[in-house]
Design a protein around this nucleic acid. Structure first.
Lengths: 265, 265
DNA sequence: CCGATCACTTTACACCATAAGGAGCCAGAC
DNA sequence: GTCTGGCTCCTTATGGTGTAAAGTGATCGG
């Protein structure tokens, strides 16, 4: 019975996430005392992922950081995927959960979105964890509770509120991904992204001399100054992505206001 | 000189993408005639990725599909990362590039967004290709050209137009990711996501009996009917994600209209 | 017809997750 | 106090990955 087995797995993983019975370091039985703990492993794994990214997160690397072998971890965590779930939830505990609603929902929503973006940029690996199971652990519920509370006073009907929340998440995640990958690229290739960008442009005009005819709208936008070069310390692509985030958030929240107005009428 | 080496690599990869000199099957020299081609390899790789996802995309798998070893591919493609870039660009050729603007920019933008969503759902692996380098190949430029042309008539200033485009991409990508991962999860675990959802809910009330007190806003939203159960054939999570996309797109485009109105005044 | 040059193969290496089995420790049973 | 069974942690092994290195054989220019 595959279903029962899967449900059994689901039970254990939920117990791990919510620290239900069977997971903490009770350990009354025989055998050597555990030298590790799920918490320690999750912390170490987050440290590894923060430092070396998702690509550097291997069971060996986590074990090395804790002074044990990779296999020792499997006593505490059933497999790497479960460990990822635990990391995902634990990381979300960093997010603020209280927002001042005195200045209105919009300021709070903007603040929350900005904090979420910052969080994703602080732990970019979070963006690579599957989002299929929307919410699983207690800290993820806290995040959801926080944003729902912010939007609760808008008077939006429940279904619409849920969709607005989903849209906000989609947008922030998308923007964060762009910034995060923008940041990652130069370190990988060893070329600053300004150089990279310039080199690409030069090659483009060489490889596609008919660029202006083939892509008139892009060319028009370009000559209208849409792609102004960097003028400060921040890398070009990152600044672009950040401004897109700020402008996009304004657009999105304007749209939410329209939805609220529609509801009221 | 790392920089020059990297630029050399960049040159070759751009040449591959834009089919510049040096890449096609000219082959005038000695040696056996090439049995494969870059195009054939890219096609095979896309077929593998469509069928088995990014996880199933290995050089060996692509080689098997073409009746050769994995190493044979390295004669045509420098490495897997380049192959991914080529796949990414080639796939984007499927997207429509002409939209009727007679009914206004909004209808066209909604149609384009829907087509982009459908494209991502048809090739979910595209979402896992790094987005750091925003546009590289000719087909990606066609996609950009298409959406810029749609929004060109709105009168938005160039910089704002670029940001709106970025926001649209962020949003559609985020929504597509949710739907795609939602689809993927049940096949992996072997449990339908409705069962899965129900099992989780049951366990939640068991593991967190104080749920209502800890998460009042979520509970209120829930009891207000935000999480209505599935009533048709479509899986619950997927339907939810699709409705979030539709509603979010409306909100977003409402926000764009506000931005246009601000520009006009 | 010969030898340089290419496509392609085999082999090898380092890494990955994790299954399997073994070594040592230690609370409780006697 | 000794035994024992359960526990943690280790070593080893398996089948996967990308790709470097070297070998094989076909093909063309000379």
């Amino acid at each position: 019975m595959v279903v029962f087995a899967a449900q059994g797995d689901a039970r254990r993983s939920m117990a791990l996430l919510w620290r239900g019975p069977g997971s903490p370091g009770a350990h009354t039985g025989p055998g050597p005392k555990p030298a590790l703990s799920v918490d320690a492993i999750v912390d170490a794994a987050i440290a590894v992922a923060d430092a070396d990214g998702m690509a550097g997160l291997s069971m060996r690397a986590v074990g090395d950081r804790l002074g044990c072998t990779a296999m020792a971890l499997y006593t505490y965590v059933p497999n790497k995927s479960e460990l990822l779930d635990l990391m995902y939830d634990r990381a979300h505990a960093e997010l603020p959960s209280a927002y001042e609603l005195g200045s209105g929902w919009r300021a709070a929503a903007a603040g929350w979105s900005g904090d979420l973006l910052a969080f994703y940029l602080c732990h970019p690996w979070v963006l690579q964890v599957s989002q299929a199971r929307p919410v699983l652990g207690p800290n993820e519920y806290v995040v959801l509770e926080t944003v729902v509370r912010i939007l609760h006073g808008t008077g939006l009907p429940a279904v619409m509120l849920r969709r607005v929340v989903g849209t906000l998440f989609s947008f922030v995640r998308g923007a964060a991904q762009t910034v995060a990958e923008t940041r990652q690229a130069p370190t990988v290739t060893g070329v600053s992204d300004e150089e990279w960008w310039l080199a690409r442009s030069a090659m483009l005009t060489e490889l596609a001399p008919d660029f202006t005819e083939r892509f008139p709208a892009i060319s028009a936008m370009e000559s209208a100054g849409a792609f102004a070069p960097a003028d400060d310390a921040m890398p070009y692509l990152e600044r672009e992505a950040r401004e897109t985030f700020a402008a996009g958030l304004t657009v999105l929240l304007d749209g939410v206001e329209v939805a609220i107005a529609k509801t009221a009428s």
